[in-house]
C-alpha cells in the first residue's frame, strides 16, 4: 500500500532528523579529574596565603600581638578542638543561624509570593524590601537590645531582618523572570490560580528562589555574628561571636584569627555542602550548566 510506504519513509526521515538535530550530550570527565579540578585551586590559594603570612611574620615588621605566626593560630584552634570546646561554640552559633534562617524561609516565602503576585503589595513594600536588603542588619542590634534586652529574642530579631528581605526578593525576581508563555500555557490547559502557582509558577521560579535562599543564609550568618559580637552576655551562651569578643578583650590575636577562620569555615562549608549541590541539581535538570 502506498499509504504505508510513505508513512515508513516519513518515519525514517524523521528519525534521521532527530538523530542529526539532537543536542550532543557532553561526556563528563572522570570523578578524580573533576575532584582535582575543583579542589586543587582553592587548596593552592589557601597555601599561598599561609606562605605569604609566614614570610610577613618572619620579617618581624609588626609586633607579635598584631600579627601572630600561623602556627600560633593553628595551636589555638587545635587546643580548643582537641578539648571539644570548639564544637560547642560552633554548634551554639550554627543552630541559632539555622533556626533563624528557617524562620526567615517560613516568613520570607509567602511574603515574596505576595509581593510578586499582588500589585498593590509590590507598590507598597517592594522598594522597602530592597532597601532593607542593603541595610546592614548590624544597624538593628542597638534597637533589638533596647526592645528585647540581651537575649535570644534580640539575636533572632536581627537574624530575621537580615535574611527575610533576601529570601523574599529572591522569590520575587525568580517569579519575574518566568517566561510569560509558561503561565499562558497553564491557563489554556485550564489551570486555576492555585494550580498555576503550584505546578508552573513556583517550579519555574525555583532557580531565582534558590539564589535568594543562598543569599538569605549568608545574611543570616553574618547578622548572627554581628549580633553575637555586640550583644555578649552569659545568658546567650558562648557562640562564635562571643568567642571572638573574648579574643579582643584579652588581646589574644591567635584567638581572634582562629574565630575568624571558624566563621569562614562554617560559611563556606554550608554553601559547599548544602547550597552548591542543590543549585547544581536544579540547574542541570534545566540544561543551564554553562557556569558549573
Amino acid at each position: 500500500m502506498p499509504r504505508t510506504d510513505s508513512d515508513t519513509e516519513l518515519a525514517a526521515v524523521g528519525a534521521g532528523l532527530d538523530a542529526l538535530d539532537t543536542p550532543a550530550v557532553e561526556q563528563a570527565p572522570p570523578l578524580w579529574r573533576r575532584a582535582l579540578r575543583s579542589v586543587a585551586p582553592p587548596v593552592v590559594a589557601l597555601a599561598a596565603v599561609v606562605v605569604v603570612w609566614q614570610i610577613l611574620w618572619s620579617t618581624a615588621w609588626w609586633p607579635e600581638f598584631k600579627l601572630p605566626a600561623p602556627q600560633a593560630v593553628w595551636d589555638e584552634f587545635w587546643t580548643s578542638a582537641s578539648t571539644g570546646e570548639v564544637f560547642g561554640i560552633v554548634w551554639t552559633s550554627v543552630h541559632r543561624a539555622i533556626l533563624g534562617f528557617l524562620a526567615g524561609v517560613v516568613i520570607g516565602t509567602p511574603l515574596g509570593l505576595l509581593v510578586a503576585r499582588v500589585r498593590v503589595v509590590r507598590a507598597a513594600i517592594g522598594p522597602l524590601l530592597t532597601g532593607l536588603q542593603s541595610l546592614p542588619s548590624v544597624a538593628w542590634v542597638p534597637a533589638a537590645v533596647l526592645w528585647f534586652g540581651i537575649n535570644d529574642a534580640a539575636v533572632y530579631f536581627v537574624v530575621l531582618l537580615g535574611s527575610i528581605p533576601s529570601i523574599a526578593n529572591g522569590l520575587v525576581s525568580g517569579i519575574d523572570q518566568v517566561p510569560p508563555i509558561l503561565p499562558r500555557v497553564g491557563k489554556v490547559m485550564g489551570a486555576g490560580r492555585y494550580a498555576s502557582a503550584r505546578y508552573i509558577l513556583l517550579p519555574a521560579a525555583l532557580p531565582g528562589y534558590l539564589a535568594g535562599l543562598k543569599q538569605g543564609w549568608a545574611f543570616s550568618w553574618r547578622s548572627l555574628m554581628a549580633a553575637e559580637l555586640i550583644a555578649v552576655s552569659p545568658q546567650l551562651g558562648l557562640g562564635l561571636g562571643a568567642y571572638l569578643s573574648h579574643g579582643q578583650n584579652f588581646n589574644d590575636m591567635p584567638k581572634v584569627l582562629a574565630a575568624i577562620f571558624l566563621i569562614l569555615l562554617v560559611g563556606v562549608g554550608i554553601d559547599l555542602l548544602v547550597f552548591r549541590p542543590l543549585e547544581r541539581a536544579v540547574l542541570r535538570a534545566r540544561g543551564l550548566t554553562a557556569s558549573l
Binding site: 508563555i181 509558561l182 499562558r184 500555557v185 490547559m189 485550564g190 508552573i200 519555574a204 534545566r286 540544561g287
Partner: peptide, 15 residues
C-alpha cells in the same frame, strides 16, 4: 471539549 492550544514556541516546562 476544552480546546488545546499549540504555540509557535513549544513552551515546554524546562524542569
Amino acid at each position: 471539549s476544552r480546546p488545546a492550544v499549540m504555540f509557535q514556541d513549544a513552551a515546554l516546562m524546562p524542569w
